[in-house]
Design a protein around this nucleic acid. Sequence first.
DNA 1: ATGTTTATTATGTATGCACATAAAAACATC
DNA 2: GATGTTTTTATGTGCATACATAATAAACAT
Lengths: 233, 233
Amino acid sequence: MNTPTFRNWQSVQTEVLRRIHAREWKPGELIPNEADLALEFGCARTTVNRALRAVADSGLLDRRRKAGTRVAIQPAAKATLTIPVIRNEIEERGQTYDYHRIERHLAAPPAAVSDAMKSPADHPLLHVCALHIADNVPYAFEDRWINPDVVPDALNESFEAVSANEWLLKHTPYTHGEIVFAATSATRDEAAFLKCPEKSALFTIDRVTWDGEFAVTKVRVLYGPDHQIRTAL
Amino acid sequence: MNTPTFRNWQSVQTEVLRRIHAREWKPGELIPNEADLALEFGCARTTVNRALRAVADSGLLDRRRKAGTRVAIQPAAKATLTIPVIRNEIEERGQTYDYHRIERHLAAPPAAVSDAMKSPADHPLLHVCALHIADNVPYAFEDRWINPDVVPDALNESFEAVSANEWLLKHTPYTHGEIVFAATSATRDEAAFLKCPEKSALFTIDRVTWDGEFAVTKVRVLYGPDHQIRTAL
DNA sequence: ATGTTTATTATGTATGCACATAAAAACATC
DNA sequence: GATGTTTTTATGTGCATACATAATAAACAT
């Protein structure tokens, strides 16, 4: 009744996951240390380490030096969402993508925007609004503010052919960002653009992108009604 | 003008990220292979490999055998969301958590639910509805269906003191799950429970949890108005 | 009893080496 | 020229070893 040998880290990972799910290792319980597992699985400790590290990354194991590795008590689900460029999102579903720029001008942003971008209240930013369309149906409304100090080239771009989304990705470096998911009620204007009833519940993604200490851009994307983002757990 | 040596994979990663952000390596561009980088950084190829793998995991690099590693053209943002147990979510903000079970009975679920759980339409499931409360204000409404074939013990549990959320986490193994984020409009009943206007836009998480081929539970959590989930990018 | 120092130990990681594998590129064949 | 086959090459991974580090437990001193 010997355990079969596990050659690669994936198979070790699978076995570890099996034991966790089968409750052979119960939540909160300490599991054998890497060296022992390596012996049991007939592989090197490095391999066990890699497997356990992967499982820990997914949140199912808690690891601490000296204390050892234990099964997470409340495995706070970690879902990795991929937020694609809208064009890709649409084209990957086999729909035709269309883009329509609605507005583009320099203006002082509302306080909510200048605050989020940590930009002086009266400092003008480039405001670009656009509609993303899938199979001739409005798909998402994009409301974006761009900091021309950080991206001076944006002032020479009309954003009529290429969406600001893609243009910025291609031309602008950034270091980090914040992203917020929420549900918002469609305003009159938004409803008109998205051709949905006013006050429809819209899935919304807000994103602020930074290059060092300067905000590059802030964008709010309002998706059409019934839009959903799904992922495996 | 020699590059300083990078001792550990984190510092290699930092340097790689710097080069990407600084556009020394431009989007779409092929970067030197691992062996060359190892030589340049004065470390082993394994170390470079680990660093590049980490960056690739975050979506900024595309790696393919033989073809080499290149900077992602459109780094589809990958956001890792942590979906905590609601009680923890509330308590971590220093608010008091309260829980109120609204309903619990065996019933044949609506088609949408039995379909999602791949359960026969007329097969009765345990329906548990509850309200999660933060500082005496309704926080989230939980609408859950539990498969008693998979979790027979649930039939002996009133879910009055412990939320089904936590009880299941503690008692039920599972293998995988699906999760869907969306925005929904509050129905009359939901609005009443959450003490918000009818048709408010509510952030919604739908989750189906499986143990092998059997659905363990399906839950829809409706968060109160203005709820948002944020994460770093 | 209590605080402080010193082992001890499990994980974390760097390294050199070997070999596996996918996929591009070169080549041969029809 | 199109198609199938072989070679080449960059990444992917396993392993043994060594040492680093964090955190606990044990030993020690006060």
